[in-house]
């Protein structure tokens, strides 16, 4: 196990602090957090709005919409829809905006190690 554990004492290996402070890495980090944090807040808020309605607004949720399908069922199915949409949006973002830059930084690190 020890062979590939991070080496804490020796100064060999890439200068990670310099990489972490570099402009490309900082840009990657900002881009990642700028996308996932607001999205995480968004779906959690929407989830808890739904949960609080289901917990405290029974009559509102029981409002019939289409036949016997009521507002509560539709909002619940809406949670499924938003989950699928956010999943697809994230994959698109990660494939296009994250992967190329992350790979470039990794290649640079691997080059420096040779």
């Amino acid at each position: 196990m020890s062979d590939s554990a991070p080496d804490r004492s020796a100064a060999r290996g890439p200068d990670y602090e310099a990489v972490a402070a570099s402009e490309p890495f900082q840009r990657l980090r900002r881009r990642h957090r700028g996308f996932v944090f607001p999205l995480a807040v968004l779906f959690l808020v929407w989830y808890f709005v739904y949960v609080l309605l289901a917990a405290y607004a029974h009559d509102f949720m029981a409002t019939p919409v289409i036949g016997n399908v009521n507002l509560g069922l539709l909002l619940g199915l809406g949670q499924f829809v938003t989950t699928f949409v956010i999943t697809m949006a994230y994959v698109r973002f990660a494939n296009r905006r994250m992967d190329p830059e992350a790979t470039a930084i990794r290649h640079e690190l691997e080059e420096a190690e040779k």
Partner: peptide, 20 residues
Amino acid sequence: EDRRVAAEMEVRSMTGHGAE
């Protein structure tokens, strides 16, 4: 905590550098 290891973890987690 070691600032260097913290930076290493951040770089690795974002780029996959050194991952098995």
